[in-house]
């Protein structure tokens, strides 16, 4: 799957999880840049992504998912 496509699809997930219709994330976005992206919201986000792409992150992967870039790369790898 194309990383550009994944980033486009992620916009909707981020908007739902953070309930912000105007939110736009780019690959360099990290939790510091998004209001409400704390450790609790992070869990919600990760599980929603797992369900959307029907993938399951491993324990090791979960431990290093910090930015949108990390997320896009891992989805591209797992959903390939």
């Amino acid at each position: 799957m194309n990383k550009k496509n994944i980033l486009d699809q992620l916009q909707n997930i981020f908007r739902d999880c953070f309930d912000d219709e105007n939110l736009v994330v780019v690959s360099s976005t990290t939790s510091d840049d998004v209001e409400g992206w704390d450790s609790l919201a992070h869990i919600n986000l990760i599980v929603t992504i797992e369900k959307e792409y029907n993938i399951k992150f491993s324990l090791a992967e979960l431990a290093v998912l910090y930015s949108v870039d990390d997320i896009v790369n891992l989805i591209a790898e797992k959903a390939a």
């Binding site: 997930i13 739902d16 999880c17 309930d19 919600n44 599980v47 929603t48 369900k51």
Partner: peptide
């Protein structure tokens, strides 16, 4: 369940 967690904020508003 998927929607409950994903959209909990907007469901709450509603």
């Amino acid at each position: 369940v998927e929607t409950i967690h994903r959209k909990k904020r907007s469901i709450k508003k509603e």
